[in-house]
Each structure stands twice: as C-alpha cells, then as structure tokens.
C-alpha cells in the first residue's frame, strides 16, 4: 500500500488491484487458453523447486545412521504420509504416497505465502515495473484445478487399470442402488448413472473449490483488515482515533494470521488425504 494521502486508492481500487493477476494479456471470457497468469506460475514453480530442493538436500545427506534435526523433520513428514497412505490405501502402489507428500508440501507452501505481509511482494513487484502480482497460488482457480484435474485423471486411470474399462463404466449403472433382479437393475440404471456421474464429477470440483474457497476467503479477510488503515497514510497517526485504528488492524492481523496458518495447514492436509481416499476407492472393487 502506498502510504500517501494524495495517491491512496479507494477501497474498491485496492481490492481489485489485489485480485488481478499479472498476465500477458487481458482475458476474454471465462476460458481463454491464450492467457497465462505469470504470477501464479512463477510462485507455483518457485515453491515446487523449494519443495524438491529441500527434500533433495535432506535425501542426499540421508544416512541410516543417527539422523540430524533436518533429516528428522523430513523423515517425520515422509513417515507420517507413508503410514497415513498405508492405512487408507490397501493396494500396492509406488505412486500414491509420493503423490500425497508432494500435494501436502506444495499446497502447504502455497498457503503459507498468505502469511506474508499483504502488500510486500506486490509493492516490490510494482517497484520493478509489474503492475499486478497475486502471491498465493492456491487463490488461483487455474492452480487448484490444475491439481485436482491431475488427480481426477489419475482416478480414472486407476479405475480403468483395476476394473477394466467395462467394469469402470458398469459401476456407474450399478451404484448406489443395487437390486438382485436384473430387470429391476435395468430400471434403476438411469437413475444410478445420473447420481453416480454427478458425484464422480463433483470430486475434482469439490477438491479444488474447497482449497480455493478457504484460501481466497483468507486472503480477502487480510485485504479487509488492510482497508482499515487504507487512507490517511502517516497523517493518520496524528489523531487518537488513527492510532486506535492502526492498533486494531495490527491485532486483527495477528489473530487472522494465526487462524489462516491453521486453515492453510488443514486444507493442505485435507487435499492430500482426499486424494489418497479417492485413489484408494478407485482401485478397490465394490462387489
């Protein structure tokens, strides 16, 4: 935020500024594959590299002797994910546990960016000539759907691999209503197909929107807290009311940061956990 009374934006301008992406072109329509959100891609790749770099550093120094603190921390994460996956997923898969670890760590890093001072990186970007910058990748629909659609493709892949294409498609007609008489089953099949297909498609959508909604709301609250002290700049500190407002915004900022930290960790965990649950369902027969 620019602390000058003369150039202070209106609340509306401030909010719009904060929810506008740094893009190559203004998007036309709801879906436009000629547009790229540079900021989301940048932070997504940066945090992905941070995750891989951290774990690679730990892995390269890993020994079967007495582990250090850093190695302990990484092993704790790996072990928790591994045991969680073993509880939920009963098949043999080399993919599921690393997938869950990647999702949890990556999404957690996304969400932790929400705790950086709201204007720090956008203002820094402004100073070097970028008009907009959205920092938290998990508040970008493209990012969350990028994750959930990949998971969705894996669900389909696992289902087809385990049950065959026919078995996979047959499940839509055979659930949730299952009758012993073939004719009865044929009668309820249309109903089954509608219900099952809806719940099948709901998985990636709910997976993505749950994370997106929580993180976007968290960011919105930070923006609203920042609005309290939007106008007035340093001149505000000349009055008692201005001081009071500043203190209130600081206290609210701290409280919401703690809450958002909790939400961010929880949502990362839920995303990873549901991924494992969906994939274990996909690879199990419902006979």
């Amino acid at each position: 935020m620019v602390p000058s009374a003369a150039t202070a934006p209106t609340p509306n301008e401030y909010i719009v500024h904060h929810i506008t992406y740094l893009t190559n072109a203004a998007p036309r329509g709801l879906v436009d594959f000629s547009v790229v959100n540079y900021d989301s891609v940048f932070f997504s790749v940066l945090l992905g590299a941070l995750f891989v770099g951290t774990f690679y550093t730990a892995a390269r120094r890993a020994s079967d002797g007495v582990p250090g603190k850093f190695q302990n921390f990484v092993e704790l994460l790996v072990e928790k994910v591994d045991s969680q996956v073993k509880d939920l997923f009963h098949g043999q898969s080399k993919l599921i546990a690393p997938l869950a670890l990647t999702i949890f760590c990556w999404v957690l890093l996304f969400n932790l960016l929400d705790l950086l001072p709201l204007d720090l990186l956008p203002d820094a970007a402004n100073a070097v000539g970028f008009g907009h910058l959205r920092v938290v990748p998990s508040t970008d629909l493209n990012i969350v759907f990028g994750l959930s659609l990949t998971v969705f493709l894996l669900i389909i892949f696992y289902s087809v691999q385990m049950k065959g294409l026919v078995g996979f498609l047959a499940e839509f007609a055979l659930n949730p209503l299952r009758l012993s008489h073939p004719l009865g089953q044929a009668l309820v099949a249309p109903f089954n197909i509608v219900v099952e297909f809806a719940s099948f498609l709901a998985r990636p959508v709910s997976l993505a929107l749950r994370l997106y909604g929580n993180m976007f709301a968290g960011e919105m609250v930070f923006i609203l807290i920042a609005l309290l002290t939007l106008s007035g700049g340093f001149a505000r500190l000349a009055s008692v009311g201005g001081w009071g407002l500043t203190l209130v915004s600081m206290v609210l900022g701290v409280v919401w940061s703690l809450f958002d930290l909790f939400i961010g960790a929880l949502q990362a965990f839920i995303f990873a956990l549901l991924t494992v649950v969906y994939l274990s369902q996909a690879s199990e027969h419902h006979d």
Binding site: I19, T23, P27, G29, L30, V31, D32, F33, S34, V35, V36, N37, S40, V41, S44, V45, G48, F51, V52, F55, Y56, A58, A59, R60, A62, V74, E75, V78, D82, K94, L95, A97, P98, L99, L101, T102, W106, D140, L141, N142, I143, F145, G146, L147, L149, T150
Partner: peptide, 30 residues
C-alpha cells in the same frame, strides 16, 4: 477470474514434481 493456460502449465508442473518425488526423493529418503 478465468480459466486459462495456467491450468495446463500447473498440471504439467504437478506431474513433473510428482514424478521427481516418486522417482528420486521418496526412495532416497525411505
């Protein structure tokens, strides 16, 4: 607030990260 190429890029990056984790990181740590 729209769906664009970022989605595809994110899917590719995600796939690469998962592959790296599965192929290298996971066995190296476990």
């Amino acid at each position: 607030m729209n769906i664009n190429l970022t989605l595809i890029i994110q899917m590719i990056v995600f796939a690469i990260l998962v592959w790296i984790t599965m192929r290298f990181l996971w066995p190296m740590i476990l």
